[in-house]
Structures are given as structure tokens and as C-alpha cells.
Design a protein around this nucleic acid. Structure first.
Lengths: 327, 327
DNA sequence: CTCGTCCTGGTTAGCGTTACCACAAACCGG
DNA sequence: CCGGTTTGTGGTAACGCTAACCAGGACGAG
């Protein structure tokens, strides 16, 4: 920056101002500075800038998994908003482990990020302490937690699962099975099961443990789930796959077996990946606001940083059932 | 840090050393410092550290798209290596635009990243200048460029497309069509087409422009491509979909039309997404080292940063044909 | 003509670390 | 028991920028 100042015949302070608040510098000087910047090939050092101004334009994001394409839409939404506002994105994955999440968040706080977006809502004690101490704004995305750290943007996994279960009952299915991802470290899965059970209770139906299954993610896993659920004595007439692409795997397995869907068994999914619409038959599912969760989260965070919004806030973005031929 | 120093009864310098090179501090003092760190709840400021040491532990990554799950495997590979080595990852997407890439890279250089990983190999002049001036190490991933900026980790898109085309010819298909993503801003697509044409030339077959098609990404797009290619006068007997999930879209469309694959038309894909193995019929494709590209890129970058490796390097990771029932 | 105000640009003092050197104490073979 | 090395710790000066104040000239009102 000193070189630029010398080349433009002004002080370093004026260069700094010309770049950050051009309006506060006379047009003539501004032009000289801009020319000098180009001539010197000056690239500002934001580390120094942030250190001095105690501000940062980096947002830290923790997702459970970088492989799972379901998070991609949310990440994209976040990235789009941040880019427009001149912010940068740091990403880490927690591998569904609160301890790994804690390490990632610690690293982000060391980098003095301006804010955090967390896709999980289950945190270690130390994590909550660190974040409170640091005083950075946080948006949580996964599911609405009992005690939010700060802001939350999500849809209700519980209500969504409940709605789909009711929908299946209304269509006349009597024995509905539920397949979720492993719920141990996944609050979303637990919420979905809870919603499923809510609906059964409301309908006055008993919940049969033979109709509850947890499976790892993946297409093959969906096929496996179908096999297991249908080989028993009283097989379900509908299966609700509340996670990942399990439903797609099951439909493909039905094709291989030559089973009619929904004739032999109806299949419903939880997420609107476009594969589900293209399968034969197309699969009934929920439209979830994946991208919007990202954009709204980012916007909420930036609003807070700009002082445009103050308190904690919980934003429920809703969902929608897409009825297709599979049920 | 001053607070920690006071609480531990040592100088700030000693605190810094105790945290970064514990071996150079007496065990007794180290213990006192560690206790003080916990007591004070000290979170080091890496901005200040990097500014002072002129080192950084952040790596910048630019991918063409954050939505496309094909890049997810590579990102995951990068992230895994970086995490283990205590580095952080900054991500931006270029939307397949060299100008957007330039902006992203400029922002990364302003953040004084330690190194860059770029998934595209087509850059603006200004980008190349900036990177050279900054002197940061770079790994390119997309396809081997004519003039690498620095290091390259990839497989040969051209050889892979050529190999698959040859494979289809060997299986007896006479009229093979090629569908790629739009090649305008996508060197990978151009390379694949070149490989396809290489193979035809080698086989002494003319290249029929009616058998070359460019389509946007997406399942629906694959279905559309199938429709267009098969409605003409001399339809192909095999279609090689060299991009995205186009092949899956085409197979699903064949199911809808009740066409036998490969009876009516054979279908081959370029990428080993697990959907292709689960379709009916399973689809012949290439196994590409997606994850390994990530891990090797990150490792190569870190090796350079640690001074363990010096010059530019080009690493070709190869590919493999997976023959399945669709051809 | 003088005083206050606005506008532009400069000066100074950090931001929180680490590099580098200085120095005291412990160590060690001859 | 003495020079010289090693080991452990501290002081000082950056790193490159910005916040906060300050100086001085232009300008309008009284």
C-alpha cells in the first residue's frame, strides 16, 4: 500500500479511503490512486485490514457431510448471497460428530469469522460456550432445537413427516412403514420419526416396531430396506423413506423384481431430488426449501452483521407434498 | 494473549511458543500456560498470527458449480487431507465463467491464502498474472492445460472418451453418438469430444454431425437428448453420454418408452455415480478417480508449502472402463 | 473582515501476533 | 573451575492496515 501511496503522491490513509469509501476522496485523487493500484498491481491484505478494523468478511459453514448432495443446494444458496455482498465462505464438515464440529468451529473462531452457519443443532457444551464467549452471530439449519444458540432457519422435520404419514393414510394405506437414516447422531431423523409416530397416534393406529427401520444412506441401502420390510409376515402396503435417496433405491429394486408400485407396495420419499420425478413411477415426496434455507440463513446473518436486525429469530420455511404415481 | 501471559506469569512471547512449539518450552511453564489458556478461555487470533508470520493455513478452492454433486467427491478428498494437516478450506464457485473465477481468486489472494486449487483450467489473462505475482502454489484439476499455471492433478478426459468410444466399437456398435455438456466454457467437454473424434478417426469412420449433441446438465436433459437423437433418419445404435447424469436420464426415458437397452439403443456414461449401477439395466461407464484427485491435489499443495517438493508437476491418475448390461 | 463549518487529506497509535536478537542460567568436557 | 555451548525466556520491532483525531483551506453568514 505504501508503494501505491508513493506512486499516487498521497498518504497511505488516502489510499485506504479511496478503496473503501471512494465518496470521501476527491475524484481527482481517486483517479490517481486507482491508476497507481493498477500500475503497482496492488492486492489489499484483508488479514491486516480485519485485524485493524476488527471486522471480517468471512462466514464459516459447518455441514454434516460434504459428499451428501442434499446439502449442496443449501450451500449454493448461502454462497450466492455471500458473493453478492462481498463475503467469503469457509466450509468444514462435521462427519455427524459434535466433537468434529467443535474442532471446526474453534478453527473458524481462530480465523475470526464474522458469523457461523451450522447445519446441525446438536452441539457439545464447549461449543456453545465458545460461541457465546466469541459473541459471533450464528444461524442453525437442521431442525429447530430446544434451546437455539441464536438464529434458526429451517422447516419442521416433525411436521413434514407427520403430514406425509397422514397423506398416506388418507390415500388408504393401512400399514405404513418408516425408514430413516441412523438417528443416533442425527436430530433430523429423530424428528421425522417423532412426526411419523405423532400421525399414527392421531389416527389411532398402533405403531408396529417391525415397520420402523434405520438404514445408512445410499441407493443400495434403500433396496436393502425394501427387501427386509417385505419379507416378513405382515408386510407394509406403503413405505415412507424419510432420508437421502433411499426411496429411489427402493423403486429401482422394485423394477428389478418386477413389482408394481404402488400395486405391490407404495413408496414415498422425503426430499425432492430430481431423480424421484424421473423414476418409473415418479415418486411422491416433499418439496423442501433447501435452497431458500441457504439464502435466508445467509441474509439473516448479514442483516445481523449490518445491524439491520437484532434479536434471535426462528424462521420456519414450510414444505409441500408432491403427490405422484408411486402412491 | 496478554491476559494469558499475565495469568501464567510469563511473557506473551512464551505463551506464543508454548502453543506453537511446546517442545521449546519447559514442561512446567507449558503446564502453567495451558492452564491459563483454559482459565481465560483464550482463542488465538490467526489473523494476527498470519499477518506477522506471513504464513497462512487457509487454502482456496474454486469449483465450477457447488450444486453439481460430481465435484463433491473431490471437495471431500481435499477437505479430508486439509483437516488432518490443520488447514482450512475456503470455497467459491465460478459458475463456469472465467471472469467469476478471477473475482473469486482475487478475493482469495486478498485473504492471503496459502495456496489455490482450481477445478477449471481456462483462466483470464489477469488471473494468470495475479497468481504469478502473488507467488502462491496452485493445483489445477479439470483437464491437463496446454500451459499449466503450476501443478496439475487430473485424468485425461480425451483418453477416457477415446477409450470408451473404442470400447463401444469393439462391442460391435456401428453408429455411435456423443452427447456432451455445452463446450463453450468447458474444456473438459471439448477434450471429451476430441477423444471421441480421435477414436472415430482411428477406426476410419466418418464423423456424422447429426451424432454430436450438446446438452445442459440434468436428468431431463438426458431424456431430451435421447429423443432428439433417435427421431432422425439414421438413428445411432449406441449413445455415449459424456457428462453429468445425462445417461441416467436417457435410461429412465427408455424405460418410459418401453425400449430395450441395449436392444433398441445402447447407452454408455462417463462418470461412476452410483445411480448408474442401480438402474435397469445398469449402465456401462468409466470409473474416474474423483476422490483421489482431491486428496492428491491437497497433498501436493501441502507438500509444496512444506518445501517437500519443488517444481511444477503433472499427475495423471488414469481411469477404468466398467462394462455393464446397457451396452 | 472575521468566525464557524465543511471538506479533504495527513498523523499517530494501535490491532494481536511472531521474527529476531539479547541475555541469564544451566551444563559440560578438559 | 573456566571458556563455550546449549536451553529457556524476554524485549522490541515489525506485519499491513484502519480508527480516531487533527490541520488547513474554501466558503458562506453575520
Amino acid at each position: 500500500m505504501r508503494d501505491v501511496a508513493r506512486a499516487a503522491g498521497v498518504s497511505a490513509m488516502t489510499v485506504s479511503r479511496a478503496l473503501r469509501e471512494p465518496a470521501r476522496v476527491s475524484p481527482e485523487v481517486r483517479a490517481r490512486v486507482e491508476a497507481a493500484v493498477r500500475a503497482v498491481g496492488y492486492v489489499p491484505n484483508r488479514l491486516a485490514g480485519s485485524l485493524s478494523s476488527r471486522r471480517s468478511d468471512v462466514v464459516g459453514l459447518v455441514v454434516p457431510s460434504l459428499e451428501n448432495s442434499l446439502f449442496a443446494a443449501t450451500v449454493k444458496g448461502i454462497s450466492d448471497v455471500l458473493r453478492r455482498e462481498g463475503f467469503q465462505l469457509m466450509i468444514a464438515d462435521s462427519l455427524y460428530s459434535p466433537e468434529a464440529e467443535e474442532a471446526a468451529i474453534r478453527a473458524f473462531l481462530e480465523q475470526r469469522v464474522a458469523g457461523l452457519i451450522l447445519h446441525d443443532t446438536l452441539h457439545t457444551e464447549a461449543t456453545a460456550r465458545m460461541i457465546r464467549r466469541a459473541g459471533v452471530p450464528v444461524v442453525e439449519n437442521g431442525t429447530v432445537p430446544a434451546e437455539p444458540l441464536d438464529m434458526v432457519v429451517s422447516y419442521s422435520n416433525r411436521e413434514a413427516a407427520k403430514a406425509m404419514t397422514r397423506h398416506l393414510a388418507r390415500l388408504g394405506y393401512r400399514r405404513v412403514a418408516l425408514v430413516t437414516l441412523p438417528s443416533a447422531a442425527n436430530a433430523r431423523s429423530r424428528d421425522r420419526r417423532a412426526g411419523f409416530l405423532d400421525a399414527l397416534a392421531e389416527l389411532g393406529r398402533p405403531s408396529d416396531p417391525r415397520l420402523l427401520l434405520e438404514m445408512p444412506p445410499g441407493l443400495a441401502s434403500g433396496a436393502e430396506a425394501l427387501a427386509r420390510l417385505t419379507e416378513g409376515a405382515e408386510p407394509p402396503d406403503a413405505i415412507f423413506f424419510a432420508g437421502d435417496v433411499l426411496a429411489a433405491g427402493a423403486v429401482l429394486e422394485c423394477q428389478r423384481r418386477g413389482w408394481a408400485v404402488p400395486g405391490k407396495v407404495a413408496i414415498a420419499a422425503f426430499d425432492n431430488v430430481d431423480l424421484l420425478a424421473q423414476l418409473n413411477p415418479p415418486v411422491t415426496t416433499l418439496r423442501l426449501p433447501r435452497g431458500e434455507i441457504g439464502t435466508r440463513s445467509a441474509r439473516m446473518l448479514l442483516d445481523r452483521l449490518a445491524g439491520r436486525q437484532s434479536g434471535p429469530a426462528v424462521l420456519d420455511l414450510g414444505f409441500e407434498i408432491i403427490q405422484r404415481a408411486s402412491t
